[in-house]
Structures are given as C-alpha cells and as structure tokens.
Amino acid sequence: MDQFEPKIVAFVCNWCTYAGADLTGTSRLKYAHNVRIIRFPCTGRIDFLLLQQAFAKGADGIIVSGCHPNDCHYTSGNFHARRRWMVFRQMLENMGVEAERIVFSWVSAAEGAKWADLVNETVESIKKLGPYHKYQDMAKSLEEWEVTHE
C-alpha cells in the first residue's frame, strides 16, 4: 500500500507569499510536492466559498497565506481577511468541519525558508489526520445527483 500523499491547495497572495514561494525555488530549497499553489491578488480576495470548493473537489488540506499585517499591498486586505478567517474558522467548528485542515499563515516575500517549513509541516500534519473522507464522501452526493439529473 502506498503511503497517503495528501492533496493540499494553497491560496496565496501575489505580493508576499507567492513571491516568497518563488524565493524558496530560487534558493534551491526542496519542499514537499503535495501543494498546488493558486495565486490571488490579495488575501482579502480569498472568498470562503473558494475554501469550500477546494474541500468539495477533494483537497485534504488547505493553506491560506499572505502578507504580514501592515504589509498589505492594498493597505488593509489582510486585515479584512483576518477578521473573515476568525469568523469562518469558528463557523466551521460550529458545523463540525475539521478546521485544523486549513492552515493560515503570513509569509513575506523574503521568507522563502518559512514557506518551505510551512508546506512541510502542513503536509506532515495532514498525513497524520489522513484523507478528509468525511467531506469527500459528502461531495460525492453531487456526482450522484449529476448522474441522475442528466
């Protein structure tokens, strides 16, 4: 049996974390290959519906990362995002979703090493948690519905 390799989707901002992840590469730092990076203009743009979609499409873990507070390219996008995540995370808890599968972080353009660590640690922790069967089983209901409603 192959070891479980989690699917991780990373929603990152263009100005800090994406550049940070780029630096990881140019610094020749190796890190876990489980992550699929999606670039956004700003963490403020990352709608919680995108996170729902990621889980529904089979992600086992999610990384959300952007500029440190006070570093936002648009001044306050990350502050708005921070409030949204505070509420969203609590909402997930209240509904019984495994909120620790979503990892939030601030990674600046100079923190290539932090990005590598973040991804590695996230992959490790998701490996321990295992595949997110509960959510994925729920998402299967859509496929079944689509078949019967062709």
Binding site: S76, H80, R83, W85, M86, V87, W106
Partner: peptide, 14 residues
Amino acid sequence: LSTWKSNDVENFIR
C-alpha cells in the same frame, strides 16, 4: 466584516 482593527486578536495564524 467590512471593517477591521489592527489589534484583532486571533491565535491560529502562523
């Protein structure tokens, strides 16, 4: 959710 404070306190962002 359309406002924010620079000292909003969370404990989960690394």
